[in-house]
Nucleic acid binder design. Structure first.
Lengths: 242, 242
DNA sequence: CGCTCATTTGACAGAAATCAAAAGCGGTGG
DNA sequence: CCACCGCTTTTGATTTCTGTCAAATGAGCG
């Protein structure tokens, strides 16, 4: 029922306001979800990481575009076929509900970021999230606590689009954090976090706000080759529903 | 299993990062969902209108506060009791999934508003949404097309919090729209839209973006007294699942 | 009628976008 | 191995938008 596709960076998988023909999940690489204003201004409303679900079930059309932010390997299935699988497997539909509820909480968390954090706070928040993501991917044992490296998988341009700012502003703030000794710049996409507490303070977020990033974000789907499944922050590999 | 409560404007129904003890739906009035930064800055991440569902199923804690933006009448049920109802009624869980998917699309639409629309565009977008909401509530026959009145149910302060701006900025833009003849100010919360096309142009949104506001937002829950149920823009009253 | 609170209007300041130029980085080919 | 080219990132100067502070006006209400 499903098939694997490799898509080059920049290619569109589903167009904005187009037919919601397929759903699927990302195997490798990162997808971006974008919305565009009439004059061309564009906002990245979400990023889809390996193991995560993408697409729009139960709708004929998409609300935003799904594009490859990096070269991606994805597994796709016809949307209607997927819906009929869900109808036959309530436990899978339940899993999708849990994922969607988490995504919703996450999307609303982003309202806080875009609505009332300044750009320095946004950069700090992003670094904290990248750090958290990395800590989850590496299992507890493999993670040396003194090597707190935040890795940004996407281009600076996409990062700016995601944080609702510009590449210039991000550059300035990253270097400001470096000068203050909060981070060490390894290269344009790798940052060693020297003072996580300070970064948290600079983000303006409450400790509890970061818990959100450890929630269920991945739902193992009944198709595709095994992907990393993350459930409540505990990483397990090689999970497969069917 | 459920009970009706009346809550005064300003009261908190569920606290941020508190126990997600109950879920429910709004019968009358408007609730706001808020998140607060450590220094007190606050963002309204969502509004809950009559007939709409609120609360956080399948989580022990809330990600944001639910407060009464106006005096509200709500119907509440213990969260765990609700979850067990869902477990026994897959069709209800399915309905909740559809609602959650729509809410998610809506939350992401708001990322566009907060991330790359200027404050005038946000005000224009809000007026268009209020107009759309009103057109849906009034059935086709009752709606005189030449009376395009956008009604804001919430205080100016809450509106500012929702649009990620200030009351002063909103005031300036509303009066600018009035001077340009795009709207007529009836009073602080009622605006007659004189030129909907111009408002749409000023919002920067594509026509299709507004369709989103006509999607399923209400799920009839198996408790509470009958509420107005809106399904795909068609208003029906007195619907009840049980 | 006067009180309180919300809204409007004005002046000003600060944050961040924009525009422009320089520097850095990576790949290619001589 | 090094020079060259194109692209991304960084840095600087300037402008614009919008938030902040403060005062005036208006609406609602006892």
């Amino acid at each position: 029922m499903s098939r694997t596709r490799v898509v080059d960076a920049g290619e569109t998988i589903l167009a904005e306001h187009g037919e919601a023909s397929v759903v699927g999940n990302v195997i490798a690489g990162v997808m971006r979800m974008t919305k565009t204003l009439l004059d061309g201004r564009q906002q990245i409303v979400g990023l889809v990481y390996p193991g995560e679900f993408f697409g729009r079930p139960y709708s004929e059309t998409t609300e935003f575009a799904y594009e490859a932010a990096t070269d991606v390997e994805i597994c796709v299935i016809d949307r209607r076929a997927f819906e009929s699988v869900l109808a036959r497997h309530p436990e899978l539909e339940h899993a999708l509900l849990l994922t969607t509820l988490s995504e919703l909480a996450f999307a609303r968390e982003r309202s806080l970021l875009l609505g009332c954090q300044n750009t320095l706070e946004r950069v700090a928040s992003y670094l904290l999230v990248m750090l958290e993501r990395r800590r989850q991917l590496l299992s507890g044992a493999a993670l040396e606590s003194h090597k707190l490296v935040a890795v940004s998988a996407i281009s600076r341009r996409d990062l700016a689009g995601y944080l609702g700012t510009t590449i210039e502003t991000i550059s300035r703030h990253v270097h400001y954090l470096s000068r203050r000794g909060v981070i060490r710049i390894i290269n344009a996409s790798h940052f060693e976090v020297l003072d996580r507490d300070e970064l948290l303070a600079l983000s303006g977020l409450a400790q509890d706000d970061l818990k959100l990033f450890g929630a269920v974000r991945v739902v193992a789907m009944p198709f595709g080759r095994p992907v990393l499944t993350i459930i409540n922050g505990a990483a397990r590999s090689e999970d497969r529903v069917f």
